[in-house]
């Protein structure tokens, strides 16, 4: 369940690409995401979903407005500052899983740990194994991504996104490349981690059925928040 702690805050955030020919990808967006939320972000192609996801994932900085993640203002951070913010707070699940092909399932889940720790502290192998067991891949530690099915690969991606107990997971079409059975399994896994760990999930999807199963659904149209619907209330931004 969502708490009152605000993890992400957008205040009149705009994103403009290009200099001579300017594209206003996001226009004056104000949003808040609290700890433990399970949110779907939908919208047609070119609506600004990806831009929103990049900003939510600290992969980019806003052109104007203020964006805070975990209490840190993104506007003032350089590329390495954004990386350090991501390693603390953010996990990613991509449509095409994007596992590292040369690494085993266990090693893929260990990558965030290896990025963070130094010589003194070895990566948390027990945490990585526990996560893989929780996503049903306890027998696939040593399998390379090519040896796993699409659904299994996406489960490894979920385990990797949750490694080091990161508070926010951004999922970009996490079921878009899976059959309906595998898609449902992946979705249920995310829901389960949201319930049990209190991890905030922000899921970008075209799948309206999937979006309706979340507890908050945001629709982006033409770079603006068209609707922001929760079970309790529906918000129509001005």
């Amino acid at each position: 369940m969502a708490s009152d702690e605000t993890l992400i805050r957008f205040s009149s955030v705009s994103k403009i690409y290009g200099t001579e020919v300017q594209v206003h990808a996001l226009k004056e967006v104000s949003l808040e995401f609290k700890r433990g939320e399970f949110v779907a972000i939908t919208g047609p192609s070119g609506s600004g979903k990806s831009t929103l996801l990049n900003l939510l994932g600290a992969l980019d900085r806003p052109t104007s407005g203020t964006l805070e993640i975990g209490g840190v203002r993104l506007n003032d951070l350089d590329a390495d500052g954004l990386s350090r913010l991501r390693r603390i707070h953010l996990g990613f699940i991509f449509q095409f899983h994007h596992l590292l092909p040369d690494f085993t399932a266990l090693e893929n889940v260990l990558v965030p740990s290896r990025i963070c720790v130094g010589v003194a502290k070895p990566p948390d192998i027990s945490e990585a194994k526990a996560l893989l067991e929780r996503v049903g891949l306890g027998s696939k530690f040593d399998s390379k991504p090519a040896q796993l099915s699409g659904g299994q690969q996406q489960r490894v991606a979920i385990a990797r996104a949750l490694a080091r107990k990161r508070s926010i997971v951004l999922a970009d079409e996490p079921t878009g490349n899976l059959d309906s059975v595998s898609g449902n399994e992946v979705f249920e896994l995310m829901k389960e981690f949201n319930r049990s760990e209190g991890t905030t999930f922000l899921i970008v999807t075209h799948d309206q059925n999937l979006a309706r199963k979340t507890r908050r659904m945001i629709t982006v149209v033409d770079g603006k928040i068209a609707t922001d619907v929760t079970p309790e209330k529906s918000v129509e931004p001005a």
């Binding site: 990386s83 991501r86 990613f92 590292l100 990025i115 990797r160």
Partner: peptide
Amino acid sequence: GKEIGIIKSMGAVQSQ
């Protein structure tokens, strides 16, 4: 390139 992007999305800084 894609793998480097993924590693950076997970928080790897430029020096890493």
